[in-house]
Structure formats: C-alpha cells, structure tokens
Computed example of a mutant assay.
Amino acid sequence: MSNAHEARVAVVTGGSGGIGREIVERLATDGFSVAVHYSGSADRAEQVVRSVTDANGSAFAVQADVADEDAVSAMFDEVTSRYGGVDVIVNTAGIMMLAPLAETSLETFDRTMRTNVRGTFVVSQWAAKNLRDGGALINFSSSVVKLALPTYSTYAASKGAVDALTLILAKELRGRNVTVNTVAPGPTATPLFLDGKSDEQVKQMAGMAPLERLGEPADVAEVVAFLAGPARWMNGQTIYVNGGVI
C-alpha cells in the first residue's frame, strides 16, 4: 500500500471494541491509515494496532474521553500531526446499561447521555469543522430505537438523539462535500451485547431476524466500509444493519 501520508485517514472511536476493531481492520485492509481511539482499554487498543501493522497496514492508538472537547481536540491534533489530516470518522464509542425505566438511576441516565449523546456531539462538531473534502462522518445508532425493547429506554433514547444530530448535520454541511450517515446495528454478537444475557435470551434475539442469526461485527464493518469509500451519494441516512429484524 502507499505510505501513511498518501493514504486516506480514518479515526475509529471505540476502536478497541468488538465492532470497532472489525471496522479498524476492514478500513486498514481498504488502504486507510487508522487511528484507533480508546477510552480505558489501552491493551486492547494496542492489540488492534498490532493486528493492522502485522498485516502491513498503518495504525496507532490514541486515548480520549469523547465527551471532553479538549481531549477530543488533542486526539485529532495528534492524528493530524501523524497523518496530515482526517478523511473519515467512525463514531462507535458508546455504553449500554439496561434496566426498566422506573428502576434506572439518574446517574446511569446521565452517564449514558454523556458518552452516547455528548460524545457524538463533540466528535461530530470537530468533524463538521475539519474533515477534508470528500470526507465522511459515520455515527452509530441502534435498531433498538425502532424495536422498542423493554429495559432499553435509556440506551434507545441516547441513540434516538444520535439519529437526529446526524440527519441535521448532513444538511448543515451543504457545500462541504462531506457525507454524514448513521449505522444502526441490530442484535450483534459482541461483548457489549452478550454481557448479562442468558443463552435463551441470545437464542431468542437471534431468531428475530429472518436470516435466523445474530449479526457479526464483519456484517457491520461491511456497511461502514461502503459509507467510508464508494457511497458518495448516500447522505443524511440512518442505515439499519440488522438482517431484517425491522
């Protein structure tokens, strides 16, 4: 592949996670130089970087609290210093804590909104001002916004906000040649999804899709790669990647 400063550059927030890692590896395979963002999992982020560099790709790990504007600005300064600029941002960083609404603490609500909504807002704001011509911002929502499953009220509310931010930002960037879309996965076999669920619950959710399986991180990465590369006429959309659950 070309050297790092000639390649297109992607930043993947939450790049050490299940879907995030798959996206990093897929974009690196497509020739991107990739910044692997992490919040607290430095070891996992370095594992992702090694998987890319072992395959002759270019990647490095960078830490930031996505809800802290100064930390996000410093993160992008580091990426720009290393790679010269940013073409694609994939915003997978997020948290999910489940409970019935009546039993959800305000601390849980505030923490979820801080990461999932404020974090998306802060990163999107940087993207709006700084992505290079021909760039793409790909935010992450969830199919649960429409599925309306019990115990998901806080998480779904945070992702509904992401949908709204994304659709409006796409219109605000008129004339910039930057696309803004949201990917909304359904039930996907990641640690975030599987944590705390019984085998019976997992089996039940796998059966919701007509394809009768859970999604895999690679299924989601395929759509992200499309939006990051050839999908220049897809803009201002929420794309449900869920095997037909809804």
Results as ranks from 00 to 15, higher is better:
residue 210 P to I: 10
residue 86 V to Y: 05
residue 100 P to F: 07
residue 166 T to Q: 03
residue 113 M to Q: 14
residue 97 M to S: 13
residue 201 Q to S: 13
residue 74 A to Q: 13
residue 105 S to H: 07
residue 191 P to Q: 09
residue 144 V to C: 06
residue 98 L to T: 09
residue 2 S to C: 05
residue 3 N to C: 11
residue 125 Q to L: 02
residue 118 R to P: 01
residue 33 S to R: 14
residue 203 K to D: 15
residue 209 A to V: 07
residue 79 V to Y: 01
residue 225 A to C: 09
residue 97 M to T: 14
residue 232 R to F: 03
residue 145 V to E: 07
residue 143 S to V: 11
residue 43 D to Q: 08
residue 206 A to G: 15
residue 228 A to L: 07
residue 96 M to E: 14
residue 84 G to E: 00
residue 185 P to E: 01
residue 93 A to Q: 00
residue 121 F to V: 00
residue 92 T to Y: 10
residue 65 D to W: 08
residue 122 V to G: 04
residue 223 V to P: 09
residue 139 N to Y: 03
residue 100 P to D: 15
residue 124 S to M: 15
residue 225 A to Q: 05
residue 159 K to S: 10
residue 192 L to K: 06
residue 20 G to F: 06
residue 168 I to C: 12
residue 85 G to I: 02
residue 24 V to N: 00
residue 2 S to A: 14
residue 95 I to T: 15
residue 28 A to P: 08
residue 202 V to M: 00
residue 91 N to S: 14
residue 156 A to E: 04
residue 20 G to W: 07
residue 106 L to V: 10
residue 180 V to I: 12
residue 24 V to K: 00
residue 163 D to W: 12
residue 108 T to C: 03
residue 165 L to D: 03
residue 68 D to H: 11
residue 246 I to T: 10
residue 41 S to V: 00
residue 73 S to H: 11
residue 11 V to G: 03
residue 78 E to P: 05
residue 100 P to I: 04
residue 81 S to L: 12
residue 186 G to D: 10
residue 219 D to F: 05
residue 220 V to P: 04
residue 34 V to D: 06
residue 124 S to V: 12
residue 133 D to Q: 14
residue 42 A to S: 09
residue 23 I to A: 04
residue 130 N to Y: 06
residue 185 P to G: 05
residue 82 R to V: 04
residue 89 I to V: 15
residue 139 N to E: 03
residue 65 D to H: 10
residue 158 S to R: 03
residue 28 A to Y: 09
residue 242 N to G: 13
residue 75 M to S: 09
residue 242 N to H: 10
residue 196 G to F: 05
residue 85 G to M: 02
residue 152 Y to N: 13
residue 209 A to P: 02
residue 15 G to C: 02
residue 29 T to V: 06
residue 156 A to N: 04
residue 147 L to I: 11
residue 141 S to E: 04
residue 147 L to C: 06
residue 181 N to W: 08
residue 52 V to C: 10
residue 74 A to F: 03
residue 219 D to L: 02
residue 70 D to F: 09
residue 225 A to L: 02
residue 141 S to H: 02
residue 211 L to Y: 12
residue 1 M to P: 12
residue 210 P to Q: 03
residue 94 G to A: 11
residue 181 N to R: 06
residue 37 H to Y: 05
residue 150 P to Y: 02
residue 110 D to E: 15
residue 33 S to K: 08
residue 185 P to V: 00
residue 124 S to E: 14
residue 226 F to N: 04
residue 111 R to T: 14
residue 7 A to E: 14
residue 149 L to Q: 12
residue 191 P to T: 03
residue 125 Q to G: 07
residue 170 A to Q: 07
residue 92 T to P: 07
residue 27 L to K: 05
residue 175 G to M: 09
residue 228 A to M: 09
residue 172 E to D: 08
residue 234 M to F: 14
residue 198 S to R: 03
residue 1 M to T: 13
residue 59 A to F: 10
residue 39 S to V: 09
residue 112 T to A: 13
residue 190 T to N: 00
residue 233 W to M: 12
residue 158 S to W: 03
residue 141 S to C: 04
residue 40 G to C: 12
residue 100 P to R: 11
residue 118 R to V: 12
residue 65 D to Y: 07
residue 49 V to Q: 05
residue 150 P to K: 03
residue 199 D to W: 09
residue 118 R to K: 14
